[in-house]
């Protein structure tokens, strides 16, 4: 289980550009479930994931993952427990390396890196199996540099690379937003298959209401760093979410 306790974060503290994103924010995320976080631009979704991953630090608050307080661990230390896929398909891979090289690196995640050879022949079959399960034909392109792959192929690879060591927590930040609708659908389906198979606690940010409902177990809507809706996905409809968006928008104008 992931527990976020008393989280506060301000950007540009003490300047006239000060922005308060979170003020004593609390959230519990169930184990092995996929929780979707939705909400308008700038409401703090990415900031939350950045704080969880340790790429930015919170002003105060605790993050407890599987009973261990990881609040004070560096980003590198946390990466042992956390996998992440970004909106930009290039962020999760090393573009000038091949698929095989990328997967071999991801396979060492959290381990010590030594002067042994990275590529081990006896791992290749396992990688091929994983790639095959994507159904994108990537298993035939092991020696292709990742920069020559399409965005969707790269994002699917990022997904496997983030999940292959079975992290305790998987963070997906609009990971299909840069893809066309068809590819986006493929990657979402692959995400679901992977999560069903590996059972990973997942937080998924999305601006696509349909996807958020369809592919998650629980929906949380944020607005200005506060939870304004928290519901099981199966009890939530797209119309409902859009109505809340509209109402919030109305509040702001009025």
């Amino acid at each position: 289980m992931l527990r976020i306790q008393g989280l506060s974060k301000k950007f540009n503290k003490g300047t006239e550009n000060e922005i308060e994103v979170f003020n004593n924010f609390n959230l519990d995320i169930e184990e092995n479930k996929c929780t979707a976080i939705i909400g308008p631009n700038g409401c703090g979704k990415s900031t939350l994931l950045n704080i969880l991953a340790g790429s930015i630090s919170a002003d105060s608050g605790r993050i407890i993952l599987n009973r261990e307080d990881i609040s004070n661990l560096s980003q590198e230390k946390r990466s042992k427990y956390i996998g992440r896929v970004y909106q930009d398909p290039s962020m999760g891979v090393s573009p000038s390396l091949t698929i095989l090289e990328n997967m071999s690196l991801a396979d060492k995640k959290g381990d010590r890196f030594s002067l042994k050879r990275l590529i081990r022949k006896n791992n290749i079959d396992r990688y091929v199996e994983m790639l095959k399960s994507l159904g994108l034909g990537l298993e035939n392109k092991l020696n292709t540099k990742v920069k020559y792959l399409s965005g969707g192929q790269r994002q699917s690879l990022s997904l496997i690379m983030a999940a292959m060591k079975h992290p305790d927590l998987l963070l997906l930040d609009e990971h299909t937003a840069a893809l066309d609708p068809k590819t986006s659908h493929v990657v979402m389906e692959k995400t679901k298959e992977l999560l069903d198979k590996y059972k990973i606690t997942t937080i998924m940010i999305s601006h696509n209401m349909k996807d958020a409902i369809k592919y998650s177990d629980r929906i949380i809507m944020l607005n200005k760093g506060k939870i304004v809706l928290d519901k099981l996905s199966k009890d939530t409809t797209e119309e409902e979410l859009i109505d809340i968006y509209k109402a919030k928008l109305f509040e702001e104008i009025a």
């Binding site: 790429s55 970004y86 000038s96 390396l97 050879r117 990275l118």
Partner: peptide, 23 residues
């Protein structure tokens, strides 16, 4: 071709990835 060598290449390519590998 070593693990360290590949991380060096990846550092020039995508530092975010290197950090996400715990390095």
């Amino acid at each position: 071709k070593t693990e360290v060598g590949y991380l060096l290449i990846a550092t020039g390519d995508n530092e975010t990835l290197v950090k996400s590998l715990g390095a």
